[in-house]
């Protein structure tokens, strides 16, 4: 596994930032037409197109793992439109799990459902459940603020707050009411070392977080996300706005971080998924299509749709 991650050099320099909820439109249709030309039978995609039930191909090795997050029969609506369709998947503890799929397939939505960031949108309705450490995330008595403290999040575009580097990193502790200078300092150093930024910024912790370069800003955001020692780190296309070198550093960082945290990462870039993740889930039009160890998904997928997608023939 580790060999796969490190031997493949980044190929795609820059993938266009994708909106988290794009309209399901022309690009998907074109993908299907090109598929039809290959002459292979695509039963799952046919089922999805015709809204027929189907069983996603979930590899058995995953089910044997200890799951930290369990998604069970989870559906999500934005107002009248359904964005996620009965998704069931466990996320193994201490591993990197990648969500891949074409734009608008609901991978970001699924990711943001784990820490209930979708609550910010008024029209969101959910059914089914997501368990974090065996406790339901969507139970009525759940303290959302507490939940989000257990799930750090890194966003597509780096979003350092308009404050000093130090304050950026200790933000989760500050809002938790932590005032002891020594605790804050320790947490700041630990988090910055964890995000491989300490050596670069240790002498200018009081400068604005916005004075850093793009890649540094994203690592600052990662430091912020891990400062509160979350159980799961959610990453929503963390490299999509970065140049190749910054991307490489973030990917190396993800490898480091995965030793301490469970990482769930959404990526638009299949090479990146192949490089950084232990497990990969392929989603399409709000459904889970195939989910298994990354090596199998990329080298020996069970469904022809997955093969077509990971080899870049549609999507």
């Amino acid at each position: 596994m580790a060999v796969t991650r490190s031997t493949i050099k980044p190929m795609t320099t820059h993938s266009a930032p994708t909106p988290s909820v794009p309209p399901q439109g022309a690009s998907v249709e074109t993908g299907l037409e090109s598929l039809a030309a290959t002459g292979v039978q695509f039963t799952v995609i046919d089922a999805i197109r015709n809204n027929r039930p189907f069983t996603p191909a979930v590899h058995e090795t995953i089910l044997e793992q200890d799951a930290i997050v369990e998604v069970k029969d989870f559906s999500l609506h934005y107002g009248p439109s359904k964005a996620l369709h009965n998704i069931s998947m466990p996320v193994p503890r201490g591993k990197v799990t990648a969500l891949i799929g074409p734009s608008g397939c609901g991978k970001s939505t699924l990711l943001r459902s784990v820490n209930r960031l979708n609550d910010l949108i008024d029209s969101v309705r959910v059914t089914g459940e997501i368990l974090l450490e065996k406790s339901p995330v969507y139970a009525p008595n759940v303290d959302v603020i507490e939940l989000r403290k257990h799930t750090g999040m890194v966003f597509q575009k780096s979003n350092p707050f308009p404050m000093s580097i130090f304050e950026n990193v200790v933000y989760p502790l500050r809002i938790d009411g932590e005032k002891r200078k020594s605790v804050l300092k320790d947490a700041c150093e630990r988090a910055l070392r964890g995000s491989a930024l300490w050596e670069e910024v240790k002498d200018r912790l009081n400068e604005s977080g916005l004075s850093l370069s793009g890649g540094q800003q994203q690592r600052l955001c990662i430091a912020r996300a891990i400062a509160a020692e979350p159980e799961v780190l959610l990453m929503d296309e963390p490299c999509s706005a970065l140049d190749p070198i910054a991307t490489l550093r973030i990917e190396e960082l993800i490898n480091e971080i995965s030793k301490r945290f469970t990482v769930l990462i959404v990526t638009h870039n299949m090479q990146q998924a192949a490089r950084v993740s232990d497990y990969t889930a392929f989603m399409y039009l709000g459904r889970l299509v195939e989910y298994g160890p990354t090596a199998e998904i990329f080298q020996n997928p069970r469904l022809p749709e997955t093969e077509q997608y990971v080899t870049g023939r549609f999507g």
């Binding site: 910010l120 509160a228 959610l234």
Partner: peptide
């Protein structure tokens, strides 16, 4: 979102 994501 970053702030909410930190649990604020």
């Amino acid at each position: 979102e970053g702030s909410y994501g930190c649990g604020a």
